[in-house]
Design a protein around this nucleic acid. Structure first.
Lengths: 265, 265
DNA sequence: GAGGGTGATG
DNA sequence: CATCACCCTC
């Protein structure tokens, strides 16, 4: 029996309910991680997801950020913060334990540009994430890290790696920070299964016709700990929602795992 | 051969192009008067109307008001102001001469409430209109006055005349002002043809389920000078557009005239 | 409740 | 280009 996990930066959940509900209906993932809810907790459309057969754990915030995990079974644990004592945290992290497997959903800061403080904040976020994984989890456990990671790991993961080398989301310091997190014990399952495939998950609104011309980036990822990654059957970005009338700038990514090959649950 | 004239307060032409073009296609009026364009001249969708086979005369304004007349033949004259010397006028009047018949399209100020200056401005608008008709036209000529008149003439023309008596759009001073314009020589052709029919043209967004519960007002009218009114074959409000997904708060009204009974053109 | 304007962010 | 916030009008 395959276990399906997905991620989707919705760019405003209130403006994206139709495509999200249709996507849930078509794919029936066991868990769907959402980023950029851009709404407060009180405005989160809990009922609509319940009617669609999904539990929802979420952390909203006014206007910006906001993350959720929708799931067909109820999480046994939910975490909403790193809990490392840094104050006034933004709503960029949520982790849920589903049938014994942790799913960590992050909306990594975009970073603006390497010259700005936002870039350091982004790098620091990766550092905090690594420390948090180190302190709370074991790489030997089945665990998924997913979300809008806001880094294209390699040249194949963006439309113009030469021109964009050193820019935000494709900068050596970001690659280093991401690699440090992965070194904890996480595998990019899309790239594991498709070593040579160029497949994007984000196309900038501000670039004219970016989706039609496929001028995109692979910024949304599904990482898994080693044993779980070995049980991964497939991972794909689904460009369909990005082709619609008023889409998010991101599109969903999903992965299927054969949990029986794992002995989990 | 019937001559068909219609009026539609669109509440933002840019947000209402689909229903307007479909309505034009289905009804093929000789003239369609629009109010509340809510766009500047530069943003008026002239090309789309041309493709649909219509000429357009219009007076836009940023954010508010804005009036247009779409017509299958090109107007021989267009007027955009009362020209009575009052400054800084809002885009609430357009008149076009079509095949020898003047069509006067107004978006009469709503008036807010009888206690506010906006109410006096509304009454003054009727006064200016009357003077303008007096100075420029003859009631013996065929002439149509239509648009969002923002007054329910009689008790039958709103859903709760008792509770709303004396409120804006159903106030004695508005009735007086409207009657004074009509006394120039204009007949409400809907009421002429349907003396006892309760039929609304506006349902407030702010009243829950107002359209479904038919809690409406007849605020959009087609007046004609005597000889033309006598040639009127039919006049109806078409509720269909108001029943759609994201409708205007108003719905179109149309009237057909038998011009041969007139000897016009 | 639904248009529109402005200004901010990505 | 497309979110959201806050403002105004009907």
């Amino acid at each position: 029996m395959a276990w399906k996990v997905a991620t989707f930066n919705v760019n405003g959940i209130r403006s994206r309910m139709a495509p999200v509900l249709e996507w849930l209906d078509r794919h029936r993932p066991d868990a769907l991680c959402l980023q950029e809810l851009k709404c407060q907790n009180a405005d989160f459309p809990l009922d609509a997801f319940r009617k669609a057969g999904y539990f929802a754990a979420f952390r909203g915030q006014k206007a910006f950020n906001g993350v959720a995990v929708l799931s067909r079974s109820e999480p046994s644990e939910v975490l909403l913060e790193f809990g490392d004592g840094k104050p006034d945290e933004e709503a960029r992290l949520i982790a849920v334990k589903l049938n014994g497997i942790w799913i960590v959903n992050t909306y990594v800061p975009q970073g603006r540009s390497p010259e700005e403080p936002a870039f350091e904040y982004k790098l620091d976020f990766f550092g905090r994430l690594k420390s948090w994984l180190d302190g709370r989890f074991e790489p030997s456990q089945p665990l998924v890290w997913t979300g809008d990671i806001n880094v294209a790991p390699e040249a194949i993961d963006l439309f113009d790696p030469k021109r964009l080398a050193g820019k935000v989301s494709f900068h050596p310091r970001e690659h280093e920070a991401l690699a440090a997190v992965a070194a904890w014990g996480l595998v990019d399952v899309f790239r594991k299964l498709h070593p040579d495939t160029k497949q994007f998950t984000f196309w900038d609104y501000r670039l004219p016709q970016s989706f039609k011309r496929n001028l995109g980036w692979r910024l949304d990822h599904i990482y898994a700990t080693r044993t779980l990654a070995d049980a991964c059957l497939e991972c794909q970005a689904d460009g369909e929602p990005r082709g619609r009338e008023t889409p998010s700038d991101h599109t969903p990514v999903w992965a299927e795992f054969d949990l029986e090959r794992l002995g989990a649950e």
